[in-house]
Design a protein around this nucleic acid. Structure first.
Lengths: 147, 147
DNA sequence: GTAATACCTAAACCTAACTTTAGGTCAAGG
DNA sequence: CCTTGACCTAAAGTTAGGTTTAGGTATTAC
């Protein structure tokens, strides 16, 4: 079983060495091996880092990622908890995507707004169309962005 | 032109009063009126808050939102800059959504993984399918999540 | 008159997630 | 031998985006 120095892992994941040490200090690698004081990263930690990036991207805090990593090192008795965590994160991410879609609708509306204001030489004409006399496709964006 | 107290706005947007004062201090309401020391929010600030929430959701920092609000109070000469900002944010949000889709793929893979591990009574069977002998739909999730 | 309500300011405080600093160990190369 | 490179620790510092605290004013309600 091959092992890697912290510098190799740093390059592999494009993460600063200081961040990897911070993760270790926070308990994200509960079974990390050492040779003296040198950290020896293995495939287990490489897999862990992929999951860490995923859970971080899902909005999970470090302390909760630590909890998950501990479950992993406790073996099969924690499968149910781990599955539940991923299901919760899936729902959180789905909601986040929906929120971003609404954000995107308002951004697109605003792009149209300023494009049109520049062509019209002012906002007055648009303002007279508000709140429900906009071109159909634009009206949709505008309305969506409210809820 | 109706105006609103900070408490009314707080309820309207479900934002703490302290946050509204913080936004004001950071310059997000460049033309906010006052009656003595009382803030008088108008429709202009209500529109501003909708945009603030949108730009914040898009990942923009407060200091850049302030810049945008200043452009707004400088009039038509800044239309082009404002439009550019919204276009940049649109791209940023589109990228963020794509990233979250990959995150979602890994989360869904992990849900399947633990569901299957629980049914199989262990991970060995799954591990033997890695890295490219997974069921077709699952393999897709797993592969997508890498890039 | 006094109590509750709705505000105000300045300044200190908070949290998460890192990053930087200061001072070290150890092995290989010239 | 001595320098370079890769690593180590503990502790202090940083940043964004707020929140809390302490002390005050003005209006309305009983």
């Amino acid at each position: 079983m091959r092992s890697y120095g912290i510098g190799q892992i740093s390059k592999m994941f494009d993460l600063p060495i200081s961040t990897l040490r911070y993760y270790d200090k926070e308990g994200l690698f509960p079974d990390l091996a050492r040779y003296g004081d040198r950290r020896l990263f293995s495939d287990r930690e490489i897999d862990a880092l992929r999951v860490i990036e995923c859970l971080k991207a899902s909005g999970l805090e470090i302390k909760d990622i630590k909890q998950f990593m501990q479950w992993c090192s406790e073996g099969p008795s924690t499968y149910a908890k781990r599955k539940q965590l991923f299901e919760d994160r899936r729902i959180a991410v789905e909601e986040e995507i929906q929120q971003l879609q609404k954000t995107l609708d308002l951004l697109n509306y605003k792009c149209w707004y300023y494009e049109t204001a520049m062509n019209d030489g002012g906002e007055d004409k648009i303002q007279r169309m508000l709140p429900d006399g906009l071109p159909e496709d634009i009206q949709k964006l505008y309305d969506n962005s409210f809820r």
